[in-house]
């Protein structure tokens, strides 16, 4: 059996006045049912664009310029828009950071949910209402009947995000793409939403792509993590390996710059500089200007994702052999910061 989702060599460009900019530069990954994949990286790395590309919702001036996206035996970027729309609404749901991207402020929760059901299947209004109630219970909304009568502004941020998840479930999707679903929420509420999403993947037999800049969050939720940098996946593997023995210098730097990584009060390990802008992505390894391990080859040729020690663990770095001894490496990194 094939994978639920198989992305191969995906490329997204933005057509701008002065030429095309490559935002996503050949990324590949797979996802199975019940599997959770974390897409992490800093602002501008291309996480959201990847999410939108999977559901073929890149808006102008952006376009998918290469690669393939296979989902449940369909080649998504070759489907006519009408067929795509039905897959997007029925089989794949997307959840955003801001619940108001999904919710309509002037309609009650009930109206929005019932209309969504009716748009996707033949059902009576009262059946649709029952389905809405069933999904609200699934996301642990207290007194769901009452919520149907309420407007979005009458609910807290955490409650709104639960409603959005309930709406995403209305069509029994096989894949959920959650783009920073808890970034705007407090940690106590975040913990509840993450637990809920995780649990729903199991019970509803769904795959999930969790997009976030928060490594700690993904490491708790997903089985696998893909780390993005300047439009590419630079390391991917089982979450445990990514967190405990990262091999790409960028991932290593990222994990060690987290305030929890070092003794309280000590200087944090910082990665010098910042992620390049799309207009100025360095040749070769895009990370080389910030990398302590760079050698001449890093400026010239682009490293491919190659398997490293652990099974299913890949990193794109010419100097990956030097990252085996992480203690030595950390000493190097910290010397630079003094």
């Amino acid at each position: 059996m094939g994978h639920l989702l198989e992305v191969n060599g995906l490329e997204v460009k933005f057509a701008l006045r002065f030429g095309d900019l490559t935002a996503i530069d050949g990324i590949s990954f797979t996802l199975d049912k019940k599997e959770k994949l974390g897409l992490v990286g800093e602002s501008g790395a291309g996480k959201s664009v990847t999410g939108f590309a999977v559901i073929n919702l890149i808006s102008k001036p952006g376009f998918i310029s290469g690669g393939s996206i296979r989902f449940e035996e369909h080649e998504l970027n070759r489907l006519p828009e009408e067929k795509m729309r039905s897959i997007r609404g029925n089989r794949i749901s997307m959840i955003f950071q801001d619940p108001m991207m999904t919710l309509n402020p002037v309609l009650t929760i009930g109206t929005q949910m019932i209309e969504t059901v009716l748009a996707h299947r033949d059902a009576s209004k009262s059946d649709a209402r029952d389905i809405a109630l069933e999904k609200l219970r699934k996301v642990y909304i207290p007194s769901p009947e009452k919520r149907l009568e309420q407007y979005p502004h009458e609910l807290s941020g955490g409650m709104r995000q639960r409603i959005v998840i309930a709406i995403a479930l209305l069509t029994n999707p096989a894949l959920i793409i959650a783009d920073e679903p808890t970034t705007a929420l407090d940690v106590t509420i975040q913990a509840g939403i993450m637990e809920l999403l995780s649990q729903l993947c199991e019970t509803e037999n769904m795959g999930m792509i969790l997009i976030t800049h928060d490594l700690a969050v993904v490491s708790q939720v997903t089985q696998r993590i893909a780390v993005m940098y300047a439009g590419r996946i630079i390391e991917t593997g089982p979450s445990d390996y990514i967190v405990n023995c990262p091999r790409h210098p960028y991932t290593i730097g990222l994990i060690n710059s987290l305030p929890g990584a070092r003794k309280a009060g000590s200087r944090l390990t910082q990665i010098p500089g910042m992620m390049p802008n799309l207009t100025a992505i360095p040749p070769g390894c895009a990370f080389h200007p910030r990398c302590r391990l760079q050698e001449p080859v890093c400026k010239k040729s682009r490293p491919a994702l190659e398997p490293v020690s652990a099974p299913e663990h890949f990193a794109a770095c010419h100097q990956v052999d030097k990252t085996v001894d992480q203690d030595k490496l950390l000493n190097l990194l910290n010397e630079d910061n003094q």
Binding site: S156, G158, M159, V187, T188, Q190, A191, G192, M194, E195, D214, L215, A216, V217, S219, Q220, S239, D240, V243, N244, I255, L258, G260, A261
Partner: peptide, 24 residues
């Protein structure tokens, strides 16, 4: 206690956070 238990921790599987009743 509840607040600290909910803080995501790198690599912690099955985080056990303290559930609070209701909302703020």
């Amino acid at each position: 206690k509840a607040l600290l238990s909910a803080v995501p921790k790198l690599g912690a599987k099955d985080p056990n956070y303290i559930r609070l009743n209701g909302e703020v």
